[in-house]
Design a protein around this nucleic acid. Structure first.
Lengths: 198, 198, 198, 198
DNA sequence: TATGAATGAGCGTTCATTCAT
DNA sequence: GATGAATGAACGCTCATTCAT
């Protein structure tokens, strides 16, 4: 797949990925041509991009993979320290919003790609329903809480979709305070999932 | 602005707008060229599109305007029949999801445009924060409910953003049952906004 | 040739010719499309231009004809009042420069057309060597002066070309004072054509 | 600005510039599209022109620059050999007309560009009044001759404009004998500038 | 006399990609 | 590991003109 695995080559790839992120975040996916990415990376020819990435789809996948890996590492640390399920949910929301606040351009780029990157026939370049679909994982967590008798009876998929889209919405409202936003979401979803008082 | 306001001309424009909606929804905004739209509309040349719309931005605005006007009419009827605020919220969610379920391609096209249509310098062609910003209107409704003592104390903007993004997410999950999804959202947000039991 | 010879029709034609002159003079021949001319004329469709003029070449010829006829009338009055050949030359130079000064946009339009209006194969739309070629007429005047023994021996065509191009150059230097420029040219060419002192 | 400065690249650029000169001279600036220039250059796609020149304006500037540099070299040699001012004027006229006679298409192309190449708002692409404005340089030469007491009292700018336009006119009368034309102009302007006999 | 509607060809430019070192 | 050179297809848009009232 990759041209070469030397240190120099992977540094080049990282440089190009960074330039791609900045370009996509600032100008939108549709305006992020190889020419503009190359200019931002400070390289003279688009040939260097084609050299390190088989085609545009692979560059896009590299961008998404890079960002999502970073996010998973950041969130994993926080979530492994959680005690019960409410703490887990709180850690999920807070660490995710923190990552978004700390890497706004990277997140914007990934959102752009998810929304706009298509093949010629309309197929999305990166599909949301991939192996580690975050909605599916959230739904599983909710379902387990219900089976343990901790949560009320609701549709876990709808709740998962709602939570994920609420978090993603933060990336498009960059002036919101991430801590306050997280606190509100925690309060909102804590009330939404807990058992009704008898 | 417009070439003419005869019946024939506005029929042509509607034909082109419909073709644009279908093309954008199926292939994505980035693949929706004048050539593809013209082919889908069954017209011989892209020139006819340029003839009826000053440029691509105007066609895009016509698409968004058409869909949003239809949606507002549909939802307005339902919401005017609501009694109290909880009924109003229920009507909002249900009528919106119903419209999405009944016009999936139109909604997909608008979402595509909102996400991907940019000018060359990255500025979105249609801004979410326009005069009749739906998030702002929802937030106002929540705030009024709080002032009336009906809702608990929460951030109205965060709640509005969460609700809107939860509804918009339905457009990307077309296999969900709209009634069930609406019922779940109503239950979720009813619990999220009501006063905590003392 | 012409659609109609009613008063209304010829008024329309004059209106279009005026708009064409202004557009060509300001934007250059290459930018003077039917669309831009129609906009400046305050008419809604280019169809009205095609209606009154068979094609663009005929509109261009109408522009040139209109301006040249006016110029010929203006200059003819002055030149018919001249006594000898030196007065005639003086009248020619002065009246021509005066017309240029009083109709700068009309003259600029004609110069634009003469320089830039071509058919697809490169043939000029209006040829300088037409029936009433001004250079040929000037050359004849010089030749007659030589045969009458009033002027020295020089090539009448070269002198005519030089004088004409000197006058035409005034149209591109609109800040020159036309009277002073005329006086200089009269002095220059009087010295250039008179017999050398023995 | 330029893609690259290798020998091969500059040879390509020269090839394209030559084709552009021929196309503009034969068909006129308005008909000199990238497609026609590419065909004349024997290259397969207009893309190669865009590859070597940022846009059409840069190609046009390259054409003008190439021709004017050649002309300046040719004329400079002749003029540096001149003794007094009359010889200098003679050298200027003769070498300029000789260059025109030897490079008729190049000169025609430059004249076409000067007359017809405009931006969308009418601004000329190449302005005559640039740094090394030939009219200004001629006027300076005349003024110095007057201050040295060699020339009569006349407006140096008018004389410069007249001489330049007389020379430029030669490019549009390609059947004139350049030597004879030069001799006539030398005689004409020698008489026009010398002090009147007392 | 006027016009709305429509048209195919062409414009300069940009696209991701491939060739050949 | 890198890059200059080249490419055909497609882009949105404008052109003068024609059709049909």
């Amino acid at each position: 797949m990759r041209v070469n695995d030397t240190v120099a080559a992977s540094a080049r790839r990282a440089q190009i990925v960074t330039a791609a992120i900045d370009t996509i975040a600032e100008l939108g996916y549709g305006n992020a041509s190889f020419a503009r990415i190359a200019k931002r990376a400070g390289i003279s020819s688009t040939r260097l991009i084609s050299y390190h990435f088989d085609d545009k789809a692979e560059l896009v996948r590299a961008v998404v993979g890079t960002v999502l890996t970073e996010a998973a590492e950041h969130m994993g640390k926080r979530m492994r320290a959680a005690g019960d399920r409410v703490e887990l949910l709180t850690a999920y929301i807070e660490s995710n919003l923190q990552f978004i606040a700390e890497h706004p351009t990277a997140i914007r780029a990934v959102i752009e790609i998810a929304a706009a990157a298509r093949t010629e026939d309309g197929t999305p370049l990166v599909r949301p329903g991939d192996a580690d679909d975050p909605v599916a994982r959230l739904a599983t967590m909710f379902r387990e809480g219900q089976q343990a008798g901790e949560f009320r009876d609701f549709d876990p998929v709808v709740m998962a979709v709602t939570l994920r889209s609420a978090i993603d919405a933060a990336a498009n409202a960059p002036d919101l305070d991430p801590h306050a936003y997280a606190a509100e979401l925690v309060a909102l979803f804590t009330r939404a999932i807990r058992k009704d008082p008898s």
